[in-house]
């Protein structure tokens, strides 16, 4: 599949991916955040579609989601904000969100809209692999969307092989048993986990998320993996400094 994500994964460098919550800090910041991140050399962006009950997220992303919803963010508003995004932005864009809002929009309609806009992939933490395979895989593929699955230190080798076999972009390696933003830094357990996954020689590259907030953790996470995702630390930056100055944040990471 030729997709911006696949192309980006072939580049000979460690990838920096940033997650942010759409409509945060202000409703209309979405596009300027994306443009600003690309301008500062970020390789890939995960656009968070806010949800009222984000089970896998810690307080930072919960609060940004609550605020974004209060600001008036909806699936429809997000699609409208993004409709001309491909006129200015060329890096891969992924929408990350929980399954219920997509289900209410209609999965087929959601995927079609993503394709029209130029979204390259989706990360849906609470859509299980087996349900995806049986009910939605053909829809995603029809619209050229990469679906990204998560693995954790508790995921068995057998299940990792299975997830690798059904993935067609990259694997999202959750660094520790935690919700987002819970821990910073890596210990021996993470190092062993990174080594274990590297030794499996999976067909899909891995990008590490959860627990990455600065240069040190970025380097540690990408020693074996293809890239790393920063979420909560960037949301904190947005909260503190607003949606227009990202050069120091990005430069402090690499």
């Amino acid at each position: 599949m030729t997709n911006r994500i696949s192309q980006k994964l072939q580049e000979d460098k460690k990838l920096l991916s940033i997650y942010f919550t759409a409509g945060y800090p202000s409703l209309n910041d979405t596009v300027s955040v994306i443009e600003g991140l690309e301008k500062n050399g970020v390789d890939m962006i995960e656009i968070g579609l806010p949800f009222s009950d984000p089970l896998a997220d810690g307080p930072t992303i919960q609060e940004s989601s609550t605020k974004a919803l209060k600001n008036g963010m909806t699936t429809e508003v997000l699609f409208n904000q993004l409709k001309d995004i491909r006129k200015t932005v060329s890096i891969p864009l992924i929408i990350m969100g929980y399954f219920n809002p997509m289900l209410q929009y209609g999965v087929e309609a959601f995927c079609q809209k993503c394709q029209e806009i130029g979204i390259d992939g989706l990360i849906i933490p609470d859509l299980p692999v087996d349900v995806y395979n049986e009910e939605y895989k053909s829809i995603f593929e029809k619209h050229g969307l990469v679906n990204v699955f998560l693995i954790t230190p508790q995921t068995s080798d057998e299940r990792i092989r299975f997830i690798d076999s059904v993935s067609n972009g990259f694997i999202y390696m959750v660094s520790s048993a935690s919700v987002t933003g819970a821990k910073s830094g890596f210990g021996d357990e993470q190092t062993q986990y990174f080594d274990r996954i590297a030794a499996m020689e999976l067909k899909n590259p891995q990008i590490v998320g959860f627990g990455i907030s600065n240069k040190e953790t970025f380097i540690a996470a990408t020693e074996k993996a293809k890239g790393a995702i920063i979420g909560s630390a960037f949301i904190k930056h947005l909260t503190a400094f607003g949606a227009d100055k990202f050069d120091t944040f990005v430069n402090n990471i690499r």
Binding site: D53, T74, P101, Q104, Y105
Partner: peptide, 22 residues
């Protein structure tokens, strides 16, 4: 309620048209 996902289960739940749980 309408069909949706809450706390890991597909069931009937009260939600906005946008899929936010009320």
């Amino acid at each position: 309620g309408k069909v949706g996902i809450i706390h890991g289960s597909k069931t009937l739940l009260m939600q906005t048209t946008d899929g936010q749980i009320t």
